[in-house]
Design a protein around this nucleic acid. Structure first.
Lengths: 190, 190
DNA sequence: GTCTATAGTAAGATAGAC
DNA sequence: GTCTATCTTACTATAGAC
């Protein structure tokens, strides 16, 4: 029985989505090929028709996820960026890593991954920084904002107390608001 | 043959040091009990005389490491904090996670650990934030500084290009300098 | 307290049927 | 392209000798 020619790329796209979500929630190293494939309704035997190894999957996930994140921030106005940042620093984003940004969720594992994976990660992060720079003006300040966002989410997810988490998120949000120039938004277009 | 009564606690201290270093470099989940014990010159059989499980070890490592970090920042003057921050954001710290701060190195794994581990982590982070608050004045700004430090190190370790890493570290350092009030350090004691 | 040996499980990856 | 079955290796954890 033949499969339609689009079947493989469709399956690959589905795999990237489901395995990306699992990796962001449970960690990539901590999730076996078996579980990764089961999440997409397949068995581990089929895995190697799509990826040569598990580390190649991580590379594909990072590429896919950071491209998605990049598009979310790209070309946005100062006002729109502020909205996105508010969502980024929200309790909902802390509690749902599987649908959230891959950068804080996977940074630790990417640091120990191969060059191709780290390069894909870097390109995504730089794109994000560039988007931020359209609002901050200065490059240096854009890096400061990106580091704050990533650090805040990574920290908040590791801390059990809701009060502490909220103090952290609120503090960082206030600081980022200033850096994005929220003060002079009143008479600005979209 | 009897061991001196201090032997067990000495060994435990040594274990916390060596396994902490390994966990910070290779990741905790990615390092087997065998390797962890071998790093201290012991075999895996002896592990369970010191810890009831591997997750109990993580808890002990986090407790030990964050207490160490806490002491490094505690009671320091604005000027001293600035020095420490410069080291924190240095290429040396990025390249040597095993001797560095456990917070960016282990945050991802702690986020998926048990409550006791996450609580120990949180207490360490709050202590660090409190130390920062002596220099920033405002609590919110102290959180901003802590998030920036952690985010910058986590990101830098995952990015392969030295140029990009340095732009990130420099940008964040400049921002943190301002928040720590580096401008008015001229006529200040120690 | 530490060793060797091992139980039991789960991992990454491959082979061959359909 | 996906399945089941399996190889090999590594893991956490335990048992018993010293």
């Amino acid at each position: 029985m033949r499969y339609p020619t689009t079947h493989k790329q469709d399956t690959r796209a589905r795999l990237l989505k489901t395995t990306g979500a699992l990796a962001k929630r449970q960690g990539f190293a901590g999730t076996g090929v078996d579980s990764l494939m089961a999440a997409a309704g397949l068995t581990s035997g089929a895995f190697y028709s799509h990826f040569r190894s598990k580390s190649e999957l991580l590379e594909a996930i990072v590429h896919n996820e950071l491209q998605r994140s990049g598009k979310l921030f790209h070309g946005k106005s100062r006002k729109q960026l502020l909205r996105i940042v508010e969502g980024y620093l929200s309790p909902a984003h802390i509690e749902q890593p599987e649908t959230g940004c891959a950068i804080p969720a996977l940074a630790g594992e990417v640091a120990r991954a191969n060059d191709a994976t780290r390069l894909a990660f870097e390109q995504g992060v730089v794109t994000l920084k560039d988007s931020m720079a359209t609002a901050t003006g200065r490059e240096a300040e854009a890096w400061s904002v990106v580091a704050q966002l990533v650090g805040a989410v990574a920290l908040a997810r590791a801390m059990p107390s809701a009060e502490v988490r909220e103090a952290l998120l609120e503090g960082v949000l206030g600081s980022v608001r200033e850096q994005l120039g929220a003060a002079d938004l009143s008479g600005e277009a979209t």
